[in-house]
């Protein structure tokens, strides 16, 4: 009963949030000057009134704004994201087509960061101000502060142009090899550079977060008690400090998981990775309202969903969370 009540409450909240996001995004996009017809005319270097009228009529852009919103909201609630203005294809199909590529890239980088980040952070925290701690801290700060596109380009220069080990862009080779295993290896080769680039950015956050959280926890009274009881240091670190220190990391990981679906705009652009982030980036400049709203809707749904999941996981990791609520 308690679980059902919790779920129902969440679903109502989630729907309200998604509706609010949809409406807000709808108006935000319309605030930007120019529309898809103007972009198409601009790119074609040619236009006449007939062309602009045709395009606007076709997309329903000649209707008043509230009418356009009503049509869109109605469509969303019947699970129809409409058609891309630019590509004349269903938005849902375009998103689904790009989703595997995005999930493969962000998922790999995320897993890489989630495993290595807390590990390195914990290592640094165990011997504060040691050489290892300083090295890990400086590197994580460097990767967090350096523009990700620059790291990506440098990695391409080194591994693709100089050494010729890895392909510079794309998700598949130009001539796909025969056999599933060979194709998987081919994709893996293409995945390494972008996933590593993106992973470096993610990992830095986890290192900083784990280190700070562990140091903070290590100073708490109950840790002193554990040490006073004569527990070995590794046991104090893993069972007492890390478990508590992991709570903010779980929260952050949950929040970030929701964003993974939105794609990695910069990395996807530099490495020509055919994911959702790049689709959104292009759609923005092309004023492809439906496509953009589709990306926003999908991302917001995922953020809401993973927030909920994070709540559940936190309750499991820390019984106090549920008790407080």
């Amino acid at each position: 009963m308690r679980v059902a009540g919790f779920l129902l409450q969440w679903i109502v909240k989630a729907l309200a949030v998604v509706l609010a996001i949809t409406i807000l995004n709808f108006f935000l996009l319309r605030l930007a000057p120019g529309d898809p017809a103007m972009v198409m005319a601009g790119e074609a270097g040619s236009a006449d009134q007939t062309f602009l009228d045709q395009v606007r009529h076709e997309y329903g852009l000649d209707k008043p704004l509230p009418a356009q919103l009503a049509i869109y909201v109605e469509k969303v609630f019947t699970i129809n994201l409409g058609e891309s203005y630019r590509f004349h294809r269903p938005v849902a199909a375009m998103l689904l087509e790009r989703l595997p590529a995005t999930l493969l890239l962000t998922g790999t980088a995320y897993a890489f960061a989630l495993i290595l980040g807390p590990l390195l952070g914990a290592l640094a925290a165990m011997r504060p101000r040691s050489l290892l701690d300083r090295a890990i801290s400086v590197l994580s700060l460097f990767f967090y502060a350096t523009p990700i596109f620059w790291i990506g380009l440098l990695l391409i220069l080194l591994f693709s142009v100089r050494l010729g080990w890895l392909p510079p862009f794309g998700m598949h080779g130009f001539i796909p090899p025969d056999g599933l295993l060979a194709q998987a290896l081919d994709t893996l080769q293409h995945l390494l550079l972008p996933a590593f680039t993106l992973g470096l950015f993610y990992i830095a956050v986890y290192i900083r977060l784990t280190r700070a959280s562990m140091l903070e926890t290590a100073g708490l009274e109950y840790v002193k008690t554990a040490r006073a009881k004569g527990l070995p240091e590794w046991r104090v670190a893993t069972a007492h400090i890390l478990r508590t220190a992991l709570l903010p990391i779980i929260t952050f990981a949950g929040l970030q998981a929701g964003q993974l679906v939105g794609g990695a705009l910069v990395v996807e652009t530099v490495f020509a990775w055919p994911g959702i982030g790049r689709l959104a980036f292009d759609a923005l400049f092309q004023r492809d309202y439906n496509l953009l709203l589709g990306v926003f809707l999908l991302s917001s749904l995922m953020v809401v969903f993973f927030n909920m999941l994070t709540d559940v996981v936190l309750r499991l990791a820390d019984p106090r969370v549920g008790a407080r609520a």
Binding site: S160, V161, F169, F271, A272
Partner: peptide, 15 residues
């Protein structure tokens, strides 16, 4: 081939 970044396009020609 759609290569969104102009630096990457130049690199693709060079490689």
């Amino acid at each position: 081939r759609f290569i969104p970044d102009s630096a990457s396009r130049a690199l693709a020609l060079e490689s």
